[in-house]
């Protein structure tokens, strides 16, 4: 079970980076995930440089294969980021989706 305190502290940071546009710096696609991410596999992970130069990692969702490229414009959105146990606090966090 993820510590609820860790989720709480993290969510304050997440608020600041929601709804931000950026470009993909590097990407990969994960086929063999760790336990908390089995539900989402296979999934791409991108490193994005936001307009304010901040760099953020996140999964890329609602994408087509052609969106997986360096330089692609994306925007940060709110999604569930890891599936802990059925008992634990839900971890919401940042993922990215491609912009047209």
């Amino acid at each position: 079970m993820i510590s609820p305190v860790k989720v709480w502290r993290r969510q304050k940071e997440i608020r600041k980076i929601l709804g931000k546009k950026g470009k993909v710096l590097i990407w990969t696609k994960i086929f063999t995930p760790g336990s908390d991410f089995k539900k989402y596999a296979p999934y791409p992970v991108v490193l994005v440089e936001l307009e304010n130069k901040e760099k953020i990692y996140g999964q890329l969702v609602d994408y087509e294969e052609k969106d997986l490229k360096i330089g692609k414009d994306v925007i940060s959105i709110l999604r569930k980021v890891r599936s802990s146990t059925d008992e634990g606090v839900i971890a919401y966090g940042v993922k990215f989706k491609p912009l047209k």
Binding site: T28, I30, G34, V45, Y57, Q59, V81
Partner: peptide, 10 residues
């Protein structure tokens, strides 16, 4: 990195 689901291979 862990939260984004990045493994070592990732």
């Amino acid at each position: 990195e862990q939260e984004a689901g990045l493994t070592f291979p990732g």
